[in-house]
Simulated assay, not measured.
Amino acid sequence: MKDYLIRGTDKLGRIRVLVAKTTAMVEESRKIHNTSPTATAALGRSLTAGVLMGAMMKNEKDVLTFKINGKGPGGNILVVARNNGTIKGEIMHPSVDLPSRKDGKLDVGGLVGNNGTLTIIMDLGLKEPYVGISKLVSGEIAEDLAHYYAYSEQQPSVVSLGVLVDKDISVKAAGGYIIQLLPGCTEEDIVLLENKLKEIKPVSALIDEGLSPEDIFNNIFEDFEMKILEKKDIEYKCDCSKEKIVKVIKGLGKTEINAMIEEDSGAEVMCHFCNTKHKFDEEELKKIMIDI
């Protein structure tokens, strides 16, 4: 079954909810980057967060960048999401792994680190993009994103992100949800929701059991009057192209391009998001120089 997300609200517009199944998306990123189990979980949670946040933007051309710099052994994590449901990402040191925690769970917080920042950049087609920054709380990503919403946007939010890695290191289940409490939400609503969330299983376990985003949505909000507003397919998809790489090469300047021609008789540029190699021979580089 394809990955997808749903967006919903209660009938009075006091609660915003997004729920996603991201198993195939995270597995695709694992294959591309050949990530260790812990790196798979770290990047997978970040991709899930990014695709949920991307769905909150209004226009298809809007771009959201999700960056984590926790100073852990896994290095920086970078995710780029669009409103159309496509996403791409990378982790700096994909092969680094850590022993499991005492409770048997993957040590994502240890790999990511918590001595750094979470940065959210939203390019909404305006003169300047919106940039929000908050300190990391744990490196577990879901807690850090909830803290970001509270600190940078003053938006009370519940964030759950999960990746279940199988014995063969493939992704068995992945997904997440974001619940935001909007103006008008009552204390009674909050208590009801808190009590429900205390008893619900981790989101990756629910997806592993075969529950759909709609099932999770209805399970959490069985005591509320809710409605689903949108269903959207999501996928890991890189939008790199040779044309875009040409622009990057032009930015290097004639001196650097000439050195590529004389020393290497061409150039090879690899995209960090999909590992595609874009090759340029001498003639192509000379044409690029003429256009500068």
Rank of each mutant, 00 (worst) to 15 (best):
V131I: 09
N258K: 12
E263I: 13
A150T: 08
G176M: 01
V159H: 00
L126F: 09
L18Y: 06
L252I: 08
D166Y: 06
E230C: 02
P94C: 03
E214R: 04
E222Q: 08
E143L: 07
I290Q: 10
L43C: 05
T276L: 04
E194T: 10
G75W: 04
H272A: 11
V191K: 12
P37T: 02
A42G: 04
E283V: 09
T22W: 11
L229M: 09
T48Y: 10
M226N: 00
D103N: 15
L78Q: 04
G116C: 08
Q180M: 09
V137D: 08
M25Q: 09
C274Y: 08
V63P: 08
A174S: 06
K201Y: 15
E262Q: 10
K201N: 10
L145D: 02
F221R: 01
F221N: 00
R14P: 03
N275V: 06
I6S: 04
H33C: 01
G54P: 12
L161I: 13
L78E: 02
Y130D: 05
A205Q: 13
S46R: 10
E60D: 15
A259I: 02
Q154G: 05
L12A: 14
I190D: 12
L64V: 01
A142L: 01
T38I: 04
G110F: 04
S265Q: 14
T86D: 11
V191N: 09
I288A: 12
E90I: 01
K58R: 11
G72M: 03
I190E: 14
H33Q: 01
G72V: 00
E153W: 06
D123H: 03
M122C: 07
A41C: 07
I77M: 04
I220P: 02
L12S: 11
A267G: 09
A267L: 13
A42E: 02
A205C: 08
A267W: 12
S204W: 00
Y177G: 07
K254L: 08
P156D: 13
E128F: 13
L5H: 15
Y236F: 14
G13N: 08
F217C: 03
G85V: 13
L111N: 07
I288Y: 11
M226L: 01
N258W: 03
P99L: 05
F221D: 01
K286E: 15
Q155A: 13
T86R: 12
K11W: 10
I15A: 05
S160M: 01
K2L: 10
G132A: 13
I91W: 13
S157Q: 07
V165T: 09
L111Y: 05
K198E: 14
Y236N: 04
T276C: 00
I261D: 07
